Simulated assay, not measured.
Amino acid sequence: MAKYTGPKSRIARRFGEAIFGADKVLAKRNFPPGQHGNGRRRKSSEYGVMLAEKQKAKYTYGVLERQFRNMFDKAAATSGITGEILLQYLECRLDNVVYRLGIAPTRAAARQLVNHKHITVDGQVVNIASYSVKPGQLVAVREKSKSLEVVADSLAGFNHSKYPWIEWDESVKGGKLLHMPERADIPENIKEQLIVELYSKN
């Protein structure tokens, strides 16, 4: 699958947020990239604001347009608040769950662990980052991968009580998805209603 491999600081500066995690460049230059970036942010149109919110969500979770659209259509077809359901689907992607468990320091690193077959779901190796984890399933580090330096470093001092929808089990170096997360428990600064409005215009 294709993925964004360009400079992440540039994307973070575009949105004015550290959407990929701590960013020294953003701290020093919190203004848009480019020749005219160091000045007042230009006021975007209504459509531009909605589009930017969708782009921010896609970059945050590492999802490309077709995947994102398919996920939105699935959320729209489900009873409930479409925007919140969309975020729940994004949160339940395997790479995101690995990241939320503290097994990897970033979603990109989590995706790499999944792709390289270091992660199991209910004891079976799953190497599809977009795999949708269901409530009750256990996501863990594969036995022979538990000594990986990136895993040990990421787990060191990680607060496993941050996310109430996940239960950590130190004995298996993994955690169980207890239930779909509530919107109030998802820390991402995403205005999902703008994404719903954007797609409703298409």
Results as ranks from 00 to 15, higher is better:
D73K: 11
Q193K: 15
I19F: 03
L90D: 00
D95N: 04
G136C: 06
V114Y: 00
R111N: 01
N30E: 09
T60L: 06
A129C: 11
A77T: 10
Y47M: 12
G48R: 03
Q193A: 14
N127T: 10
L113S: 01
A110W: 00
L138Q: 12
H118M: 04
N96V: 00
A156R: 14
V126P: 02
I119K: 04
M1Q: 13
V150S: 13
G102F: 03
E84A: 09
N96Q: 04
I85N: 03
F31W: 15
N115V: 04
E143T: 11
G102P: 05
A140R: 00
M50Y: 11
S132I: 09
A156G: 08
L155R: 15
R29P: 06
N38D: 08
E53M: 06
A184V: 11
N96G: 03
R111F: 00
N70I: 08
V98N: 02
P33H: 10
E91I: 00
Y163M: 09
H36L: 11
V125C: 12
Y4M: 10
L138G: 07
V121P: 00
F15T: 03
I128N: 00
A109S: 12
S171F: 13
I166W: 04
L177I: 14
N70V: 05
L155G: 07
H179P: 06
L86M: 06
A110L: 01
A108C: 07
N202I: 10
S145M: 15
R142C: 07
R142T: 06
V97H: 02
T78E: 15
L64A: 09
I81P: 10
L138M: 14
S161A: 15
V126Q: 03
G80V: 04
L148I: 14
F31A: 08
C92K: 04
I186E: 02
V49M: 09
T82Y: 06
A152I: 15
Q67W: 04
Y4K: 08
M180V: 12
S145P: 14
G83D: 05
T106V: 03
H179I: 05
I128F: 01
Q67D: 05
V150E: 05
E192L: 12
T82M: 12
G6R: 13
Q88T: 08
P187D: 05
V196K: 09
V97W: 02
V114Q: 02
R183K: 11
R14M: 12
L155P: 07
R111V: 00
M1N: 11
V196E: 13
K56Q: 00
K191R: 13
G34Y: 09
V98L: 03
T82R: 09
Y4Q: 07
N127A: 15
N127Y: 07
S130L: 08
G48W: 06
L178D: 13
F15M: 03
D95I: 00
V97N: 02
P164H: 07
N115F: 01
E17I: 10
R40V: 06
I19W: 03
Q67T: 05
